[in-house]
Design a protein around this nucleic acid. Structure first.
Length: 218
DNA sequence: CTCTGGATTGAC
DNA sequence: TCAATCCAGAGG
């Protein structure tokens, strides 16, 4: 996973289609943040899909008094309704930020959570921001990577094709290198196999071995 | 206004 | 395995 042939930013069309497949296709693509202190980032190694009819999705809320859900815009999830290729950054558990890439045409709230990247660019800068030395601890989790890349909430709503935070094209990761599992830390729709990671990457947040493992993509 | 429950991390 | 520790969203 040291091949680093970054190209142009991914176009909007990349982010339209089946969001689960887009999450899969984002593996290997390169996330780069050009900051004042320098560039930092690397290839994406772990993703999760969140869909418009998925109870775990921030844009899907329980209909009051009924046993069903519906997509609804709120102040927090508004960027999910923006055009494909928009950033959605939100806070969880006090001081942790998570970074998502919005998919689907404007008005359709689906997104891919970027859970881990391989630390390839600006490693020492990221070490300073994280306060740890170990490469494995730099970006191996959704809130770790936002801290390492200095992705703040002001980037929520930003266009990932232009500006300081970009997602660049790179060669596709072959199916035999991809593992599919259920999503981490979600209570609702916990059985959906919508998480993807690169099997042999040391920079994945969490490896699955037990009954949770859905298996490699054939 | 009050109440509930996290798309986490790091220490034990 | 578990606490830290705060806000978004819902309901009164």
């Amino acid at each position: 996973m040291t091949t680093f042939c970054a190209r142009r930013p991914l176009p909007r069309s990349f982010y339209v289609g089946d969001t689960v497949q887009i999450a899969r296709a984002l593996l290997g693509k390169v996330l780069i943040h050009e900051t004042r202190e320098g560039p930092c980032g690397g290839p994406i190694v772990e993703t999760e899909a969140y869909l418009r009819d998925d109870p775990a999705c921030h844009a899907v809320l329980r209909v009051r008094g009924a046993d069903c859900w519906e997509a609804r815009m709120t102040p927090r999830n508004a960027p999910m309704f923006e055009p494909p290729g928009t950033a959605y950054v939100y806070r969880v558990y006090t001081d942790h930020l998570c970074f998502n890439i919005v998919t689907q045409p404007e008005g359709v709230p689906e997104a891919v959570l970027i859970r881990a990247i391989e630390p390839a660019v600006g490693v020492d800068l990221m070490r300073r921001r994280r306060g740890v030395e170990s490469l494995k601890a730099l970006t191996s989790g959704p809130a770790k990577l936002t801290q390492a890349l200095a992705i703040g909430r002001s980037l929520s709503g930003a266009d990932l094709r232009r500006g300081p935070l970009r997602v660049l094209d790179a060669p596709a990761v072959p199916d035999q290198d991809v593992v599919v599992t259920t999503r981490v830390g979600v209570r609702l729709a916990a059985d959906k196999p919508w998480r993807f990671y690169i099997a042999d990457s040391p920079y994945v947040s969490r490896r699955v071995t037990g009954p949770n493992k859905i298996g490699p993509l054939q």
